[in-house]
Design a binder for these strands. Structure first.
Lengths: 217, 217
DNA sequence: TAGATTGTTAATCGATTAACAATC
DNA sequence: TAGATTGTTAATCGATTAACAATC
């Protein structure tokens, strides 16, 4: 029996699922076993009708008059997203940023595991960063293929970004998180997400400027 | 003479302006003096008609038959966003992550300046990180008010996040970039942006799972 | 003038939300 | 049964885009 899924699901829906999941994980952590769309709305700043509508794209997971079972909904959303099992990540760059990412506790808790840490500095290769031993960047392709790693995180100096990305693509990595401000290119079957803090600041700056203009006027 | 600006501008428009700005800065860096909406479309993956439509919310900046003057458009977008002058940022946390952010070269290049770095560890206070001297977190409010700092970046351990955010709010900071996985709360007149890499990975994971399901079937 | 490209309209497309019957 | 809340419809709202007259 195959799952019934509508042919096209709006991107906005997919982007909100992780938000719902975060809220649900928090609810479970706090000991709640059920949640209504109204409660989820409170926690996520998403309209309650929209939450129900979004979930309905994938099936009916709630009980009328009762709400949603937190555990069940977590499981269903994780299944939909494909995070019902752990995914391995290759992290490249063992400097300050790489070390910070390697010890970031947000990955493991939510289905991602940093499987290997690479650097091109012979002085760093072999040293430990948290639980990881720094490996030579030359081993990336072999290890990534061996372990079927499809996620990569780039935490190297800007001017090395494209080279690292190219190496990741060659290694079969499909989703890349780029922490450098460099614009990098990848083939069509890969995705890059640039974590550009300035872009976010610029966008909020617009609203801030207007609020201050109003207050000052 | 006041600027003519429509009463309401869609949020999507505001969110795309930084994208256009990045492309234009790159074009200027590469020596181009004019750009058509078709060229910008190529660089940004945004429909050319939409770029023209978006810009038209704020005025008419181009020349028919010619295109947009890169320098002029950069200046106009920076003026619209409020990034035509530099903004000071207070960074809290002088660990690996804080040190990496302090030396991130993407801020200065685009109108943001890390004005001060704070930590609560007496062993770190007074030491240097790049060009900055680590200051005591107790000095945040005084310095932020003195220098009219309205941007804050949180790079501390998760369990200290809310305390730091509270201190930032007290110090008059209005826009906060939270690098911890903790959910933090702020008053209505402040904005928090959580840089949650897992959220982005989860969302791309959905598409990746489907692509692989198709390929495997 | 001929060619190019903007600014803008009007049509399409898609997402959001209020409302409510179904039902736990 | 009465109360609550889902799942879903239908209406609204808003954003995207093709098309083209204006014009450099």
């Amino acid at each position: 029996m195959t799952e019934l899924v509508q042919e096209h699901i709006p991107q906005g829906v997919i982007e909100r699922l992780p938000t719902y999941l975060s809220a649900l994980l928090q609810l479970r952590h706090d000991g709640s076993s059920t949640a209504s769309s109204a409660q989820l709305s409170e926690l996520t700043d998403v309209n309650a009708a929209q939450i129900r509508r979004d979930l309905a794209y994938f099936g009916s997971f709630g009980k009328r008059g009762v709400g949603y079972d937190v555990g069940v909904l977590i499981e269903r959303i994780q299944r939909i997203l494909g995070s019902d099992h752990s995914h391995r990540i290759a992290l490249v760059g063992a400097g300050n940023l790489g070390s910070a990412i390697a010890s970031y506790d947000g990955f493991n808790a939510r289905g991602f595991q940093i499987a290997a840490l690479f650097d091109n500095d012979p002085g760093k290769v072999g040293s430990r960063v948290g639980d990881l031993v720094v490996r030579d960047i030359g081993d990336l392709a072999r290890l990534a293929k061996q372990q079927n790693i499809r996620f990569g995180v780039v935490a190297v100096p800007s001017d090395a970004a494209q080279d690292v990305v190219d190496a990741m693509v060659d290694a079969g990595i499909k989703v890349i998180l780029n922490y450098t401000p460099s614009h990098v290119t990848v083939p069509d079957d890969c995705r890059v997400h640039n974590t550009d803090p300035v872009r976010e600041l610029l966008h909020t700056l617009y609203y801030l400027s207007r609020a201050e203009a109003l207050a000052g006027a």
